[in-house]
């Protein structure tokens, strides 16, 4: 028990170290960009105003030596103060919290959907590796990997915006639904979520089906599967209870490693579908030269990835009892 506790603490410590390192990267970026760091923090909006610049210099202690500035920066950030957006005239942390929900909704729907559908496709394909279905899964996974995600999104927008208008192609809510009840507005959000989530999920369905197929083929060849079959268990029990549990490990590993890519993909998908998440916030920040917001989004997304990695670690132990206590 104490050993487990120690392991958890160690994990959390490493994760905290990573957060500090991300902040250090931000600090380095602000100071290595060409021009005055105060200008970088203020962006073009604040840069015109000499009083604002002076306030920033004083607030961030930009007249102090670099190591001291660094400590101040880390301290402020850890207290949740990521600076002020001069475009929106609001604290960056507030802006990000507003946009965090939609991004998490999009990313998790896409990821969980892709894991379920992709794994199922891979498992079914592995049952008969030379069948037509298995071939279709392989071709599909190749195509899904090679399609640029923003292009997939645009094709869906053209399809559902022009040819077959049954899906909303932009935004998260319908203006006409503003006064509607809780259930109606939830359904409205889900309706808007379909196309972005399908677009983002498609690449991962492709990857998971391919990976699940390979992983299952390897597991299905092992001795304990033959034993399970020999003692008279049905095909489905062997496939889903014995084989899949063991074939899950690489899938979970990839899910953890892929989380950063998923967020990168979400930036593009949000842009195509005007989804009000962190990605569109980052892009608006770039267009408005709003650096505190941009760096805040980077920090927050990195924290999301760190949390996802911690969860991956926990689920390893849940799937594979041999790893518990290690």
């Amino acid at each position: 028990m104490t050993r487990n506790l120690w392991l958890v603490l160690r994990r959390l410590g490493l994760a905290f170290g990573l957060v500090l390192a991300v902040l250090a990267v931000n600090f380095t970026l602000i100071h290595s960009a060409p021009g005055d760091p105060a200008m970088v923090i203020a962006g073009e909006m604040g840069g015109a105003d000499e009083a604002a610049m002076a306030a920033i210099r004083k607030n961030y202690g930009l007249d102090k030596p670099l190591p001291e500035q660094f400590v101040t920066y880390i301290g402020r950030s850890l207290h949740g103060d990521l600076g002020t957006s001069y475009t929106y005239n609001r604290p960056v942390s507030e802006l990000i919290l507003d946009r965090l929900g939609p991004t998490i909704l999009l990313v998790l729907t896409a990821l969980l959907g892709a894991i379920c559908i992709g794994t199922l496709m891979g498992v079914l394909a592995s049952r008969r590796p030379d069948s037509l279905f298995s071939g279709v899964v392989t071709v599909f996974s190749l195509i899904g990997y090679a399609m640029p995600v923003f292009w997939t999104g645009i094709l869906l927008v053209i399809l559902f915006g022009k040819v077959w208008p049954i899906m909303p192609i932009a935004g998260m809510r319908d203006v006409r639904m503003m006064g509607a009840g809780t259930w109606a507005s939830m359904l409205d959000v889900l309706h808007h979520l379909v196309l972005p989530a399908v677009t983002l999920g498609l690449i991962y369905v492709a990857q998971y089906s391919r990976l699940a197929r390979a992983s299952m083929l390897e597991v299905l060849g092992s001795d304990y599967i033959r034993t399970a079959r020999a003692k008279g268990l049905g095909v489905w029990a062997v496939t889903f209870k014995h084989a899949l549990r063991n074939a899950m490990m690489p899938l979970v590993t990839i899910a953890g490693l892929q989380f950063g890519n998923l967020i990168s993909g979400a930036v593009l998908v949000e842009t195509v579908f005007s989804w009000p998440g962190l990605g569109t916030l980052a892009l608006d920040a770039i267009l408005g030269r709003d650096y505190p917001t941009l760096l805040g989004v980077l920090t927050f997304s990195a924290i999301l990835v760190i949390v996802a990695n911690l969860l991956t670690d926990v689920s390893y132990r849940w799937i594979d009892p041999r790893l518990r206590g290690r």
Binding site: L18, G260, S264, A282, L294, L298, V305, I306, N309
Partner: peptide
């Protein structure tokens, strides 16, 4: 560290700052 930084966002920041 470089694995937890979402690649596209990080590249967006680099391209914008420079």
């Amino acid at each position: 560290l470089f694995q937890v930084l979402p690649a596209l966002l990080f590249a967006m920041v680099l391209v914008t700052l420079f």
